[in-house]
Computed example of a mutant assay.
Amino acid sequence: MSSAYDHVKKGSLKFKGGDSTPIKKKKKKSSKSKEKMERALREEQSKLKQVYQDVEKTEAERKFEEIKRQRQMERVSKAANKSHKDRVQEFNQKLEQLSEHHDIPKVGPG
């Protein structure tokens, strides 16, 4: 008894264009290699810190960085004092002051 499917090839499908090399699975990295990488990163960072500490800065550079740090701290403390409700309220006031030119036009029927 011959079936209508006797001429069909059986097995996995093949890609066109040549050899069908099996796909290699990636090996999982061991925890030892992770520890080695972390240790290497720490050593590299410590070397960079030593290099940066060896470079001496001028008086003007030190003052500039100090003032910059103070201004940043002021900005952070100012932003931390406002609650979300206050920020939303300020944003709404700002939007109310804008002209109708900035309004989003209605699109579609209605």
Results as ranks from 00 to 15, higher is better:
17 G>N: 12
88 V>K: 09
110 G>P: 02
1 M>E: 00
65 E>D: 14
6 D>T: 00
77 S>E: 13
17 G>L: 06
99 S>P: 02
37 M>P: 04
38 E>K: 15
57 K>L: 14
88 V>M: 13
37 M>D: 03
95 L>W: 09
37 M>F: 09
71 R>I: 10
8 V>G: 00
59 E>T: 03
16 K>D: 04
104 I>A: 08
50 Q>T: 04
108 G>P: 02
29 K>R: 14
32 K>V: 11
88 V>G: 05
45 Q>Y: 02
57 K>M: 12
34 K>C: 15
4 A>T: 12
48 L>A: 15
89 Q>A: 10
70 Q>D: 02
47 K>I: 08
70 Q>W: 12
103 D>E: 14
79 A>L: 09
60 A>I: 04
100 E>R: 15
107 V>D: 08
90 E>I: 05
23 I>K: 02
93 Q>C: 03
16 K>E: 07
84 H>S: 11
78 K>A: 12
49 K>Y: 08
38 E>F: 12
2 S>L: 07
64 F>P: 00
44 E>N: 08
53 Q>R: 07
78 K>L: 08
17 G>H: 07
101 H>M: 08
59 E>G: 02
37 M>S: 05
64 F>S: 01
50 Q>C: 02
92 N>A: 13
87 R>S: 06
55 V>G: 05
84 H>F: 07
76 V>S: 03
85 K>H: 06
51 V>R: 12
58 T>H: 09
1 M>T: 01
58 T>Y: 05
47 K>D: 07
43 E>F: 01
5 Y>E: 02
102 H>C: 11
84 H>D: 10
51 V>L: 15
62 R>E: 14
5 Y>I: 00
1 M>Y: 02
37 M>G: 04
71 R>G: 04
93 Q>V: 08
33 S>E: 11
91 F>H: 14
21 T>C: 00
3 S>V: 05
72 Q>E: 15
50 Q>A: 11
52 Y>L: 06
74 E>V: 15
3 S>L: 13
104 I>Q: 13
84 H>M: 06
54 D>C: 03
58 T>V: 05
89 Q>E: 11
61 E>F: 01
2 S>Y: 02
77 S>W: 04
7 H>S: 14
30 S>V: 00
56 E>P: 01
93 Q>K: 12
48 L>N: 11
82 K>R: 11
81 N>H: 15
45 Q>C: 09
48 L>S: 13
79 A>G: 06
60 A>L: 02
1 M>F: 03
65 E>L: 00
53 Q>C: 02
36 K>Y: 10
18 G>F: 13
42 R>A: 06
62 R>T: 03
12 S>G: 10
35 E>C: 07
81 N>T: 14
45 Q>F: 04
86 D>Y: 10
56 E>Q: 10
105 P>H: 03
86 D>A: 10
50 Q>D: 00
106 K>N: 13
47 K>R: 04
59 E>I: 03
89 Q>S: 11
48 L>H: 13
71 R>Y: 08
40 A>S: 15
54 D>K: 03
108 G>Q: 07
36 K>H: 03
71 R>P: 01
9 K>H: 13
18 G>A: 14
64 F>D: 05
49 K>C: 06
7 H>I: 04
51 V>I: 13
68 K>D: 00
99 S>Y: 11
14 K>A: 15
